[in-house]
């Protein structure tokens, strides 16, 4: 479903070259719930951005759903983001001048759905996150947890195959974080593949599969190996083969 081989990503500024990812290998299967952890600056967001076609990479091969991502036009990657990928951000990224329904509608408009289809999908998505009653509210009238649920509704409305979440609970207290996590688990059970970056070890543990990114490379801990391998660095080849 998702396969990255020898991906490397270098950020060049005038002063320094940062190797955010180096020889990064990962494969994710359809329906998996992958939690990504790792120290700050290790490359988690970079990985997620590349996975989600938000930024390019310097070397390697990336296939998503059988599509070679290396040489896509800007319009094509926008279309793939729109159709196949749902994003959830740490800061929710709701548009403050739009009400909840209009926020959820944003990607649907880019998809070219007609008004009726959009309405159905917006209502369904907001119902799914339990906020259908507050459609006309502005984001600022909601708590952080509720805002993140709206953002999840926005990600879900287009029925993506993938959900990519960068610290979705990072700005939430633990109760709200648990609710959001439960929502994501439900979504995953319904068949959506989820990759979630988190700093919360407890939340990570609830995921079906844990990978750790250290210094731009993957250390994979599958659930069934969790006991023995925690803390050790697996060889990259092994990590790839496990996936």
């Amino acid at each position: 479903m998702l396969s990255m081989k020898n991906i490397s990503k270098v950020f060049k500024t005038d002063l320094v070259e940062t190797h955010a990812l180096r020889d990064f290998n990962l494969a994710v299967n359809e329906g998996e719930f992958v939690a990504v952890t790792g120290p700050s600056g290790s490359g988690k967001t970079t990985f997620l951005n590349i996975a989600g076609l938000l930024e390019g990479f310097n070397h390697g091969d990336y296939f998503l759903d059988g599509v070679n991502i290396s040489n896509l036009s800007d319009n094509k990657s926008a279309a793939i983001r729109n159709e196949k990928i749902g994003f959830i951000f740490q800061g929710f990224n709701l548009i403050s001048d739009l009400n909840l329904a209009e926020n959820v509608e944003v990607p649907l408009r880019y998809r070219g759905f007609n008004a009726k289809e959009r309405k159905v999908r917006v209502e369904r998505a907001l119902e799914q996150v339990g906020l259908a009653a507050r459609m006309k509210h502005l984001p600022t009238q909601l708590s952080g947890g509720q805002q993140q649920r709206v953002a999840i509704a926005r990600a879900l409305a287009g029925e993506p195959r993938f959900l990519l979440a960068d610290e979705p609970t990072g700005n939430l207290d633990s109760l709200m974080a648990r609710q959001v996590m439960e929502l994501l688990e439900d979504i995953n059970k319904a068949g959506t593949t989820i990759i979630m970056v988190t700093h919360d070890a407890d939340l990570a543990r609830r995921a079906q599969r844990n990978i750790q990114i250290v210094d731009g490379q993957v250390c994979d801990f599958s659930m069934y190996q969790a006991g023995e391998n925690r803390g050790k660095t697996q060889s990259i080849a092994d990590a790839a083969s496990v996936a």
Binding site: L54, N75, A78, R81, N93, I95, V106, Y110, G158
Partner: peptide, 16 residues
């Protein structure tokens, strides 16, 4: 800036 980035992430093309 962030809104534009978000719109792009959600599938807006440049011309959008």
């Amino acid at each position: 800036t962030k809104q534009i980035g978000t719109r792009r992430a959600l599938g807006a093309k440049k011309r959008d």
